[in-house]
Nucleic acid binder design. Structure first.
Lengths: 394, 394
DNA sequence: AAGGTCTTGAAAAGTTCTACCAGACCCGAC
DNA sequence: GTCGGGTCTGGTAGAACTTTTCAAGACCTT
C-alpha cells in the first residue's frame, strides 16, 4: 500500500473534521449558487438519503452529486474541482482543502464512465486468464490485482472457457474495445499466444510466457533452465537417466520443461526415455502415468512437470511398494505451498508467480505511458531441495 | 497523448475490401451522405490506416468509428444503429442487416464508457475477494467470471490486501462508485461482512458466507452440517471423541466448523477437547498443531478444518510414528483436487465452490432486474469417504 | 375511416476532461 | 516607482459517444 501519489482520487488523507460548514468562509458562494438556478445542493442529498431500505439503492444512484454540485458548494468552478479530484498540482492549497471538504459533505464520487469517455482512459487493466485451477496464473492474478490497485488501476478479468480458437478469440474480443488501457494475458498456451498475433487489440499487451526468450512485452520464467537444474541434480546424485512426466499438450510450460529436460540429458550424453504424456495438470494424471513408471524396475529418477503430478506419481510408486526416495527419486515443479508437507517433503522448483504479476503490471503501465524500455529479463527459477531425491540404490 | 484533433470527422477506418462500396444497394445513402458534407466514408481512411507498426495502436484508438459513422454508411439514423447494437427487437430485418454490414465494414465497436454514461449501467459485476490462495474463493471467482460473461457481464476484481478495517473499506470504496452494477463479496470473514453493513454500496450486493442462515442476498454453504457429518462419521466408527484443528480467527468457516463439531459432540454427549488454534489456513499450521496432537496418546480422531491442515497433521502424525488411520483417524474439509492422492487418500467434505459462483451471479443479476425472490437455499456439503478414517484400535 | 401497432428519427441528457483564455501576482529592468 | 514579461490559478466553452424520451410517419386491422 504505502505509496500512492496522494494526489489520486477521493481518498486523500484526512480533511478537517469539525468546524462550521465552510459556507461562511466563502464569499463567493452565494453568488455562484444563484448562477445555477438554486438547485439546492446543500440539503437535498442528505435529506432524501434514507427514505427506506428498499428505495435507498436506486435513490442514491440517480441523484448522485456531480462535480458542479461540489463546485457550487465550494465556491469554485467545476473545472477546479476536476483538478482537485485528478490530483493536479496547480491548485491553491486553500482552495484544494475547501473542495475536499465539499466533496466529503456531498459524499461526492467521480463518475468513472464519464471520466473514461472524456479522457479516453479507463484506468483499468484487463486480464485474460485460462482457468484458475492452475497454480501459476491464479497467484499471478493476485499479484496483478494488488499491483494494479496500488497504481490506481482496476482489474478486469476474463476467463477462457476453452481452448477452441473461437472461444479464445471471443474472450479477447470482450476485452478489446475501450474497456481497458492495457491487457495482461495469463494463458501460457501456444494457441492463446498465437491468436493474439492476428488480433488487433488497440492497447498495450503483456503476456506471461514460460520458456520463451526475453522480450519487451512478455514476462517469462526461464523454465528451460529450471528443468535443466532438476535433471542436473538427479544426474549428480548418480542416476543414469531421468524419466519425465510431461504436461498436457499446448502449454508452453510443457514444452519448456521437456526441452530443458532433454537438453540437460543430451548434454550429459544420457539416454532420454520417451516422456509420458498427460491430458491435464492434475494429480490424477500423475497417478495414472505413475503406475506405468512404477511397473518398470529400471526407473530410478522421475521429473514430474508439476507438483500435483509428483504427488500422484509418488502415490503410485508407494502402492507398487517402491520407496521414495530409496528406490526412486521424484522431483516436481512449481513448489506449491503444501510441497514441504508431502511425505516425503517434495523436492521441486520454485517460481515466483506473484512477482510475475507485479512485473507485468509495471510493464503495461509503462507501455501505456509510452516509456521506452528493453526486454523484461527472464525470471530465475530456484531448485528447492527437500526429501524426495537420493542417490540410486546401487 | 498524441493525436486527437485530427480524429474529428473524416476518420472512418478502412472499409470495403474489394467489391463496390455498398452504396449502390442503398437508395438513401447518397442523400444522407450529402447531408453531412460529403465526408467520403469510402476511401480516404484506408490510406491512412497503416502508417507504420508503431502508430497503429494509437491510431486505432483515436480514430475509432462511432455510431454516427455506421449510421451514415448504412443510410439510417444513429438511433437505429443503437437499436441494432443493443439487440432491440423492433428493427426491420432488412435494415438490421444493412446496419450489421456497415458495422463490420467499419469494424465498429461500441464505446462502453459512453454507453455506461448514458444508460447508467456498466454491465460489469464487481468481485471483492480476500486473497486468492485459499481454495474456495478462487474457484468461486472462476465460476463467477464464466457465469457473468455468459450473461454479457464483465468481472471486475478487487483483492483485499489485509484485514485491517481501513483496507477493507478502501477496497469497497474502490468498487463503490458507479463502476459496477452489482457486487459479489468473496470474503467470508466476520470483519469484511460487518464493514459491509455500515457501507452504502449503491448497488445489489451478494455475499458468500459459510455457516450462516439462508438469506436473499447471501449464498452460503451449510458448513455446520458438514462439520457435524464429519463428527458423526468418526463417532460412528467408535471413536470416543474428536479433536478439532480450527481455522484462523475471523473466518466464518472457522466458526461454522467449530460450531458443527461442538454441536454434534454435544448431541452425542461426548467430551469436547479445546480446539487447536491456528493463524492461517496453511499446511504449515496444520503440521505445527499436529505435532502437539501426535504427542497425546489419547487422540484417536482429528477433524482438521481444511485439507491442507489435514496434510500437515498427517505428516506430523507420521513423523511421530502414529499410523493413519490405524492409530488416528483424520478428516479434512474442502476436498481439494489432490485429496484422493494424499496417502492415505483423504476423507473430507466436498463443497461446490464453482456452483457458488454461478448462484451468486444469478442472484445479483436478478437483483439488478429487481425481480422478487426468496432466500437462497443453503448448499449441501458432501462427506467424501476415503482412507484416512477407521475404527479406533481397541 | 378510425384506431393501433410498429418502425424510425430528432433532440436532449448524462458527467467529465481538454484546450484555451483571462486575470493576478511577482520579478527585474527601466 | 512603474512597466513588461513570465508564471500560476481559475474559468469558459465545447467535445467525448451513447441511451432515452418523445413524436411522427407508415401500414394494417376493424
Amino acid at each position: 500500500m504505502a505509496v500512492r501519489s496522494t494526489s489520486r482520487s477521493p481518498e486523500v488523507p484526512a480533511p478537517v473534521i469539525g468546524g462550521a460548514p465552510i459556507g461562511g468562509a466563502l464569499p463567493a458562494l452565494s453568488g455562484i449558487a444563484g448562477d445555477n438556478g438554486g438547485v439546492s445542493t446543500t440539503s437535498a442529498p442528505s435529506d432524501a438519503r434514507n427514505p427506506n431500505g428498499r428505495g435507498e439503492r436506486l435513490a442514491s444512484r440517480s441523484k448522485a452529486p456531480r462535480m458542479s454540485d461540489v463546485a457550487r458548494l465550494a465556491g469554485v468552478s467545476q473545472q477546479t474541482v476536476s483538478r482537485v479530484v485528478r490530483g493536479a498540482t496547480n491548485v491553491d492549497p486553500d482552495i484544494r482543502r475547501r473542495v475536499q471538504h465539499a466533496i466529503e459533505q456531498l459524499r461526492y464520487r467521480r463518475n468513472p464512465a464519464a471520466a473514461a469517455l472524456a479522457s479516453n482512459r479507463t484506468m483499468t487493466i484487463g486480464v485474460v486468464s485460462f482457468e484458475l485451477s492452475v497454480l501459476g496464473p491464479t497467484v499471478a492474478l493476485y499479484g496483478i490485482s494488488e499491483e494494479a490497485r496500488q497504481h490506481g488501476y482496476a482489474t478486469r478479468l476474463v476467463t477462457l472457457a476453452s481452448l477452441e480458437r473461437k472461444d479464445i478469440r471471443a474472450a479477447f474480443e470482450s476485452i478489446n474495445s475501450d474497456t481497458v488501457d492495457g491487457v495482461i494475458v495469463l494463458a501460457p498456451l501456444l494457441d492463446a499466444i498465437s491468436v493474439l498475433d492476428d488480433l488487433d487489440i488497440g492497447v498495450p499487451v503483456v503476456t506471461f510466457q514460460q520458456g520463451s526468450q526475453p522480450s519487451p512485452n512478455s514476462v517469462s520464467v526461464d523454465e528451460v533452465k529450471g528443468a535443466r537444474m532438476v535433471v542436473r541434480h538427479l544426474l549428480d546424485l548418480g542416476h543414469k537417466t531421468v524419466w519425465h512426466v510431461q504436461g498436457p499438450p499446448g502449454w508452453m510450460a510443457t514444452s519448456a520443461r521437456v526441452q530443458g529436460w532433454a537438453e540437460e540429458l543430451g548434454a550429459a550424453g544420457c539416454f532420454a526415455p520417451t516422456p509420458l504424456a498427460t491430458s491435464d495438470w492434475s494429480a490424477a494424471e500423475g497417478y495414472r502415468v505413475g503406475r506405468e513408471l512404477a511397473a518398470r524396475q529400471d526407473v530410478t529418477a522421475i521429473f514430474a512437470a508439476n507438483d500435483p503430478f509428483a504427488l500422484g506419481v509418488i502415490k503410485a510408486l508407494d502402492e507398487a511398494g517402491r520407496d521414495v526416495p530409496g528406490d526412486v527419486s521424484v522431483v516436481g515443479f512449481d513448489d506449491v505451498k503444501e510441497a514441504p508437507y508431502f511425505r516425503p517433503a517434495l523436492t521441486t522448483v520454485r517460481l515466483d508467480f506473484e512477482a510475475i504479476g507485479h512485473i507485468a503490471v509495471g510493464r503495461v503501465l509503462s507501455m501505456i505511458k509510452e516509456e521506452a524500455e528493453g526486454d523484461i529479463p527472464l525470471l530465475e527459477p530456484r531448485l528447492i531441495l527437500r526429501d524426495t531425491t537420493a542417490p540410486p540404490r546401487s
